Computed example of a mutant assay.
Amino acid sequence: MSIGTRVKRFREAKGLSQDDLALRIDVAQSTISSIESDKNIPNSLLLSKIAKELEVDINELLNEGIQVNISNNQFSDLSSAGTINQYNPVFNMQSPEIAQSILKNQEQIAKLIEIQSKLIESLLKK
């Protein structure tokens, strides 16, 4: 199951429309639509915002084994993929560890850009 499909299922399980989710994370509805239709893959910062708003762990949006039982709005992990993958020496580009590492790097980059902007601003004032 794709990231877009998982986002859609979790969003629907929360009773949110695409517009609702888009407003809550400050993006256009078309952004949510393109993610859910797998036309675009969200970057890690956007994926983090989506996960937070849907009240799920980012790993649940990334992992293939997570499925949503929409009939009673309960989430369940129906696979043993986590156990199997820990012994797999091949890197999965959608693995939670890589996603978390990318997210941390992007957060650090954002902080550095903010510091750089403040430095440039202070230099221009002089």
Score class of each variant (00 low, 15 high):
S48P: 00
E107W: 07
D57Y: 09
S95Y: 10
I32N: 02
I41V: 15
D19W: 01
L124H: 10
K52D: 06
L123F: 11
S33L: 03
M93Q: 11
R9E: 15
I113H: 04
E114S: 05
K104T: 09
V56W: 03
Q108K: 13
I3E: 01
M1K: 07
R11G: 09
I120M: 10
V7M: 04
D77T: 10
S2R: 04
L103K: 03
N59C: 04
K126C: 04
N105P: 02
I41L: 11
K125A: 14
V7F: 02
S76C: 12
G65Y: 11
E36K: 03
L47M: 04
E64T: 13
I41W: 05
I58Q: 04
A81N: 15
I98Q: 05
I98V: 15
Q67H: 09
R9D: 13
A99G: 15
I102M: 07
I98D: 06
R11T: 06
T83A: 09
P42Q: 04
N88D: 15
I58Y: 05
Q67T: 13
I113S: 08
V68W: 06
I98E: 10
A51P: 03
L62E: 09
T83P: 00
K14S: 07
Q108Y: 08
N88M: 05
G65D: 08
A81Y: 15
A28S: 11
L103N: 05
L21R: 00
